[in-house]
C-alpha cells in the first residue's frame, strides 16, 4: 500500500499548530512511514497536487488565503481545520469588530515609532477581508482538530485515525480549545 499524501499550510495563523505537529518528536519517523508530504512549509512545495489529507492552520483573513484554501479543497479528499484560528477565526478574528480603516491607521500611521507612514498598495500584497473567518464559513471542512495549538498527542491520534480509515475522535482529555 502506498503512502498517504498529506498537504499542510498556515493561513491567518501563527504556525503554532505546525510547531505542535513537529512536537510529535520521534513519532515523526512513524508518521513518515505512513504519509508523504505534498505542499507544506516543511517541503516548500508551492502548490498542492491530489492528496488524501489536507491540514489547514489559521483562519481566512485575506484574498490569498481564499486562493490557498480553495486549492486545498479541490485537491484534498479530506480537509481538516487545525487549531483555534482555523475553527473559530481565533486571535486574528478579535479584530472583527474593529473597523478596518482604524486597523490600517493604527498599523501604518499611528503605531509607536511610526512617522510619515503610508498604507501600502502594492499589487503583491493580498487585500484583507473586513472580517476574519473560520475555514468552514468559506469552504466545506470534513474534520476539526481544536486546540491552541492541538497537542502533539491529539495530532498524532487524529492522523493515525485518519490514516487507518477511522472517524477521527478526540476523547475528553485531548479536547481543548486553548
Amino acid at each position: 500500500m502506498g503512502k498517504l499524501k498529506v498537504a499542510t499550510c498556515s493561513l491567518a495563523g501563527c504556525f503554532g499548530c505546525h510547531m505542535s505537529l513537529l512536537d510529535i518528536d520521534e513519532k515523526l519517523f512513524d508518521l513518515l512511514e505512513l504519509v508523504e508530504l505534498d505542499r507544506s512549509p516543511l517541503t516548500d512545495i508551492k502548490h498542492c497536487g491530489p492528496c488524501e489529507i489536507g491540514l489547514v492552520e489559521g483562519g481566512v483573513c485575506n484574498a490569498e488565503n481564499v486562493h490557498v484554501l480553495k486549492e486545498f479543497r479541490s485537491n484534498c479528499r479530506t480537509l481538516v481545520a487545525v487549531g483555534a484560528c482555523a475553527i473559530t477565526g481565533g486571535i486574528p478574528a478579535m479584530r472583527n469588530n474593529i473597523d478596518l480603516w482604524d486597523c490600517f491607521q493604527e498599523v501604518y500611521h499611528y503605531g509607536i515609532g511610526l512617522e510619515g507612514g503610508q498604507i501600502p498598495n502594492d499589487r503583491e500584497l493580498p487585500l484583507p477581508f473586513d472580517k476574519v473567518r473560520p475555514l468552514n464559513e468559506v469552504v466545506r471542512i470534513d474534520h476539526f482538530l481544536p486546540g491552541c495549538p492541538p497537542s502533539a498527542e491529539a495530532i498524532w491520534k487524529f492522523l493515525t485515525d485518519l490514516a487507518a480509515g477511522r472517524e477521527p475522535r478526540l476523547d475528553y482529555e485531548m479536547l481543548h480549545y486553548d
Partner: peptide
C-alpha cells in the same frame, strides 16, 4: 470540535 454555525461576530 467546532462551533459549526456561521459566526455572528
Amino acid at each position: 470540535t467546532t462551533p459549526h454555525f456561521t459566526h455572528f461576530f
